[in-house]
Design a protein around this nucleic acid. Sequence first.
DNA 1: GTGGTCTAGACCACC
DNA 2: GTGGTCTAGACCACC
Lengths: 139, 139, 139, 139
Amino acid sequence: MEKQNKVLNIKIDTKTALPTYEQIKQALKFAILSGRLEEGDQLTSLRELALKLKVNPNTIIKVYYQLEVEGYIYSRPGAGYFVKLDHQKIPKDKCTLFKDMTKEYVFKAHQLGYEIDEIHKQISEAFPEIVTKKTNKDK
Amino acid sequence: MEKQNKVLNIKIDTKTALPTYEQIKQALKFAILSGRLEEGDQLTSLRELALKLKVNPNTIIKVYYQLEVEGYIYSRPGAGYFVKLDHQKIPKDKCTLFKDMTKEYVFKAHQLGYEIDEIHKQISEAFPEIVTKKTNKDK
Amino acid sequence: MEKQNKVLNIKIDTKTALPTYEQIKQALKFAILSGRLEEGDQLTSLRELALKLKVNPNTIIKVYYQLEVEGYIYSRPGAGYFVKLDHQKIPKDKCTLFKDMTKEYVFKAHQLGYEIDEIHKQISEAFPEIVTKKTNKDK
Amino acid sequence: MEKQNKVLNIKIDTKTALPTYEQIKQALKFAILSGRLEEGDQLTSLRELALKLKVNPNTIIKVYYQLEVEGYIYSRPGAGYFVKLDHQKIPKDKCTLFKDMTKEYVFKAHQLGYEIDEIHKQISEAFPEIVTKKTNKDK
DNA sequence: GTGGTCTAGACCACC
DNA sequence: GTGGTCTAGACCACC
């Protein structure tokens, strides 16, 4: 019933004020909401993910524990962690999250004095960069 | 000559993982980069801002100290803190901030599975809302 | 690779008007500029140094933070603080510090009414004493 | 019996960590120890000195008060402050102060890795600068 | 009033 | 263990 774990591209920025575990947690949550991780998919094992991200295993334990509490994943002792949510059932959450994100971004941009044309332009420039980076999986 | 300090509406979200001082710092940096705070404007005093935001004075000291190190403000002990505008630095910093904000937003949207068309569409919807809100100045 | 932290003999004079954190900061800066602390050396931990010098940990945090801002050290959260040597910066800073020290000393001596010959004479007397003391390392 | 007040060249460095009042106090003390201010000389009035140094009168009050407590000056209400010490009687203090200053300077220079020749050289360079500055009293 | 230094100590993130 | 954030509050320098 469960599938093999999929490769996710998680980037940790140690310079930011957001704690490491928050960054990892958010990446996993987004992967689930987006449907890239589907119901029953196995998550990368604690140790493997810790090694890959070069963080302490305790950090990953914390992330998985919190995602479990929030109902995104469940653990099967001895087997691993698995995605609990069917993303088909949660399009509303995803949509709300996206709208909120957008509002916040637009609000800040507008506050900085940018008009809508400049915003669209900047987005059009940023998007290909983001997609390209994700495609060429270096390291 | 210095002008009277202006009222800024800073909201602290204690639920977020972003530390309090970072939230305050970002709000002030935004106010300066956007031009709402002008050269020579006096910032709210350490104690007064601490009282208003219900945080410890030391937290504000940290914020002001970091903004000073970054070249946005300066202190005159006994008198207060004042905005220091470097006409070379400000537009550059503003642009960098906008680009970084955009990249982060686009990255998250893409992570959630949204394509560029949907992003543009969402922005076009959100922008008028934001602008309208700002026009009817509540409080 | 980082090496073990080295014992530094920092003495705090509570009678002087120089703030505690400035005295500690200067002592560390001296140790770095003089080469006693080398690239990658680990500094005494915040708490340990605070205990040793009998000051509040926050005072040490301030010192380390400022030395970080000035580019002498860097922190690896969870691991400690380490010396960062910029091979361009260090000799220049050392030279500037020496010149400033000398100017201040000469200014004071001159203010006290001493002429250059008397200054040179006094220095010639003091130097051997200092060197001798350093050779017989007490403690 | 009292003479007119003499012009002193006091420089205040607001960037240094030494408080303003300490800098002024030291300058006056040095002027007395050096003999530039002699027994019975009248000090610049509180208000005049405050204006000249662009500091708050309270700062000067503090300086004069402390110098009085330490026995360097005395006040005659309504007339002003006057030098109390005969510098002829205090050559020992002056000499000790000079020796201590020198030892401290040489110690630091040696700690930084400078040898005696470099120290003498630096002093020879600094001295003329200091003297020249004091002669051309600009501002 | 203003900013600056410092203490005592809690609690969190990460190793 | 390590550093980082934050509180509550005293006391000083300076306006």
